[in-house]
C-alpha cells in the first residue's frame, strides 16, 4: 500500500520527466555532434551507414554535447573505480566543495539568525539594515567572488575559508529574511499571554518566537544550503582550479573535456539533492517532535 503510493505519487512522475530529459538529451547529442562527425568522416574518406554514424556521434572523445551514457560512464569511472582520496576521484572533489559548503552554510545560518533576532528586537536595525541586506544580494556573486578570494589571499587567508565566506554571503540572506518572518509569526494572542506572565524579551524569544519560527527556519535553510553549494563552486573558480567541483568545471572547459564538465555538474547536483533532502528530513523530524499534526 505504502510502496504502491510511493511508486504512483513520486517515482512515476519523476521517472517520466527523467525519461523525457534523457530522450531529449540523446536527440540533442546527435544533432550537435553530427556536423563534426560528418567532417571527420569526410576527411578520413569513410562513408558509414546511418546506424554506424549514430554510434559514432555518441562516442566522440571530446563531443560538443556528451551523450548521457558517456557522462554516466565517466561518473562511474571517477567515483567507483578510483580511490576516493585520489585527485582523479569526483568523491574527493565533491568532498572539498562539500566541506566549504557546510562551513559556509553553518556560518551563514548563524549570521542570518542573529541578524533576524536583531531586526525583530531593535526597530532601528529594522529600518536601517534590511535595505542593505537586500542590496547585498543584487551584486552578482561571480563579480564579487574573485575580489573576496584575492583580498583574503593578500592578507594570507587561503584554502577553505574564502570559499566558505562566499557561501556564507549567499546563505545568510534567505535565513535572515525567513527568520524575520518566522520570529514575527506568533499571533497577538500568544504575545499578550506572555505579557500577562510578565515574561521578559529573552523568555518571549526563547519560549515563543523561536519555537514558532521553526517551520520558517527549515524552509529557508533548504534555500540556503543550495545557495551555499553554488557559492562554494563559484568560489573555486578563481582559485586556479586546484580542487573541488568548481575546479573540475574550470579544468574541463580549459581542455575541452566536455564529458568531465557534465560529470562534475551531475556530481554537484547529486550533492545538492542530498543536502536539501537532509535538511528536509531534519525538518520533518523536528516538526514531528514538536507535535505537528500527522498528515
Amino acid at each position: 500500500m505504502q510502496v504502491g503510493r510511493f511508486v504512483h505519487d513520486r517515482l512515476l512522475p519523476i521517472g517520466t520527466i527523467l525519461l523525457v530529459i534523457v530522450l531529449a538529451w540523446y536527440v540533442a547529442a546527435y544533432a550537435m555532434n553530427a556536423p563534426f562527425q560528418r567532417d571527420t568522416d569526410r576527411r578520413a574518406g569513410v562513408t558509414p551507414t546511418s546506424s554506424e554514424f549514430l554510434v559514432k556521434t555518441m562516442s566522440q572523445p571530446k563531443p560538443t554535447m556528451p551523450a548521457p551514457h558517456q557522462v554516466v560512464e565517466n561518473l562511474w569511472k571517477n567515483t567507483l573505480t578510483v580511490k576516493p582520496w585520489s585527485k582523479r576521484s569526483l568523491v574527493y572533489h565533491a568532498w572539498i566543495t562539500l566541506s566549504a559548503t557546510l562551513s559556509g552554510f553553518a556560518m551563514g545560518t548563524a549570521l542570518g539568525v542573529l541578524i533576524a533576532i536583531g531586526i525583530v528586537h531593535i526597530p532601528a536595525l529594522d529600518r536601517s539594515f534590511l535595505p542593505w541586506i537586500i542590496a547585498s544580494q543584487t551584486i552578482p556573486i561571480l563579480a564579487i567572488a574573485p575580489m573576496i578570494i584575492v583580498l583574503l589571499s593578500a592578507i594570507g587567508i587561503t584554502g577553505l575559508l574564502p570559499k566558505a565566506l562566499i557561501s556564507t554571503y549567499l546563505s545568510f540572506f534567505p535565513v535572515a529574511v525567513g527568520m524575520v518572518k518566522g520570529l514575527r509569526s506568533p499571533d497577538v494572542l500568544h504575545l499578550d499571554l506572555m505579557r500577562t506572565y510578565s515574561a521578559n524579551k529573552v523568555q518571549t524569544l526563547w519560549k515563543l518566537r523561536i519555537p514558532a519560527s521553526v517551520p520558517f527556519f527549515f524552509t529557508s535553510m533548504k534555500v540556503a544550503i543550495a545557495a551555499s553549494l553554488i557559492g562554494a563552486i563559484v568560489g573555486e573558480l578563481p582559485t586556479g582550479a586546484v580542487a573541488g567541483i568548481g575546479s573540475k568545471l574550470l579544468a574541463g572547459s580549459y581542455y575541452s573535456q566536455t564529458i568531465d564538465i557534465f560529470a562534475a555538474l551531475i556530481a554537484g547536483s547529486i550533492v545538492a539533492i542530498l543536502l536539501v533532502t537532509l535538511v528536509d528530513l531534519a525538518g520533518r523530524f523536528v516538526n514531528a517532535r514538536m507535535g505537528a499534526r500527522q498528515p
Binding site: 494572542l189 500568544h190 499571554l193 519555537p211 514558532a212 514538536m290 507535535g291 505537528a292
Partner: peptide, 11 residues
C-alpha cells in the same frame, strides 16, 4: 488571564 481562544502553544 483566560482568553477567548485557548491560546495553547501547538508545539
Amino acid at each position: 488571564y483566560v482568553f477567548q481562544q485557548a491560546a495553547l502553544f501547538p508545539w
